[in-house]
Amino acid sequence: MKKILLLGGSAQQVVAIEKAKELGYYTVLCDYLTDNPGQHHADKFYLLSTTDKEAVLEIAKKEAIDGIVAYASDPAAPTAAYVSEQLGLSTNPYQSVETLCNKDKFRKFLLDNGFNSPKANGYTSVEAALNDITKYQLPIIIKPVDSSGSKGVTVVRTLDNVEVAINFAFKFSRGKRIVVEEFIEKKHPYLVGGDIFVKDGQVILWGLLNCHRDNNVNSLVPVGKSYPLTLTEENINNIKTTLQLIVDKLEFKTGAMNIELIVDKNNRVFPIDIGPRNGGNMIPELLANIFNVDVVEMTIQSAMGNDFTVLMNNDKGYYATYNLHSSKDGIFNQIQYHESLKPFIMRECIYKEPGAQVEFFDNAAKALGILFLKFDTKEQMDQYMGNMETYIDVILD
């Protein structure tokens, strides 16, 4: 039986473990958390940090694995690429993965290769960042170079709170590096988010989605996705051209890429973040609904070096996900839905049990669960997704 090593066993990563087992592979899991749910699904579990490249390499050698996946995990993606290169397994270039997983390196890559990019620079100390801060035109964004889910990110519109924002970003950086960049005003209400999938160096799946935010709680944290993308065909084609060119320049050959871009008011495409992995918040499951493809299976087979066929069948529906969350701390009781919303709910995934601690939603890791929705019209989708707080009530004790 062939073996696959999976890096990360959170609730959202269990789907990859289960899919690998369904495909007949022996599953080996690494995670540094003692209470990760994935350990109860995998065939074998090691309590180990997924960012410790050498330690993971030793496990991979010991288990004689045939493939490795860092499903929906930016921190673990470089480890997966490093170990795969060392063992001659299916992978993308380690240096390219490193570039994508570090925001300052990615900004330099964009500038060096002629892509649109906001003025930006990386810093390793609070003092260095403060010394340069007047060189930027406000507003600016300050964020860790190596975080995901909007952890440690602040939009700064005046210099009054800039030092607080810098320290906040450093708090969430594993490598103690941050990036400061100028803020790009977008053309339409949403950032462009979602996943694409690459096979033999070509993008074969364009999972381009509207990326929603909850301005009443935190305007930086993704609160949902919707499809189809509400941009012109010209804008969409420019996005596709930009992404394929990035794939080409990085010599990215196989697997999922989680993307976030902005189209500015001059119709220029600005890549903001591109992760060499599947998106979090169950984006692969949403794309499965939209295109009738199994993105998780594609990911597993890609990592195992196997060929696979993709036959997409988009039914032209209006699909969305919504990240269930709380605007305050408390003890979870239940979630109630307005009667008018219920007919559009396809699936409900709740992470919390009654009595569990709930925290204010200031990063994606604090979501309470995911709601999958399908609407009949764009007007319905816009109405509900734009006012979801009036249709969902999170009850706390």
Score class of each variant (00 low, 15 high):
N237S: 12
I239Q: 11
I239E: 14
K240R: 14
T241Y: 09
T242P: 10
T242Y: 12
Q244N: 09
I246V: 15
I246G: 14
D248T: 13
K249W: 12
E251L: 12
F252Q: 10
G255Q: 10
G255C: 12
M257S: 07
M257C: 10
I259A: 08
I259R: 09
E260A: 14
D264M: 05
K265E: 11
K265R: 15
N266C: 04
N267L: 00
N267F: 02
R268D: 15
R268C: 09
V269I: 14
V269T: 11
F270P: 01
P271H: 07
P271M: 04
P271W: 07
G275T: 12
G275S: 07
P276E: 02
N278P: 06
N278Q: 04
N278C: 09
N278V: 04
G279L: 05
G280E: 02
N281W: 01
N281L: 01
N281R: 00
M282I: 00
I283R: 03
I283L: 01
I283Q: 02
P284A: 02
E285V: 06
E285L: 03
L286Y: 04
L286S: 05
I290V: 05
F291Q: 00
F291V: 00
F291Y: 06
D294Q: 03
D294F: 07
V295R: 01
E297L: 08
M298A: 11
M298D: 05
I300T: 01
S302E: 00
S302R: 05
G305D: 03
N306K: 13
D307E: 02
F308M: 03
V310T: 12
L311E: 06
N313Y: 10
D315Y: 03
D315F: 02
K316A: 13
G317W: 00
G317E: 01
Y319L: 03
Y319P: 11
A320I: 07
A320F: 05
T321R: 00
S326G: 01
S326R: 02
S327T: 10
K328E: 15
D329F: 08
D329N: 10
G330K: 11
G330S: 05
N333R: 15
I335Y: 04
Y337D: 05
L341R: 03
P343W: 02
F344C: 05
F344Y: 09
I345N: 11
K352F: 06
G355H: 04
A356V: 08
E359V: 10
F361K: 06
F361E: 04
D362M: 09
G369N: 14
G369D: 13
I370G: 13
L371E: 15
F372Q: 12
K374C: 14
F375S: 13
D376L: 12
D376F: 13
D376R: 11
T377L: 14
E379K: 14
Q380T: 13
Q380G: 15
D382N: 15
Q383N: 13
Y384E: 15
Y384K: 14
Y384I: 13
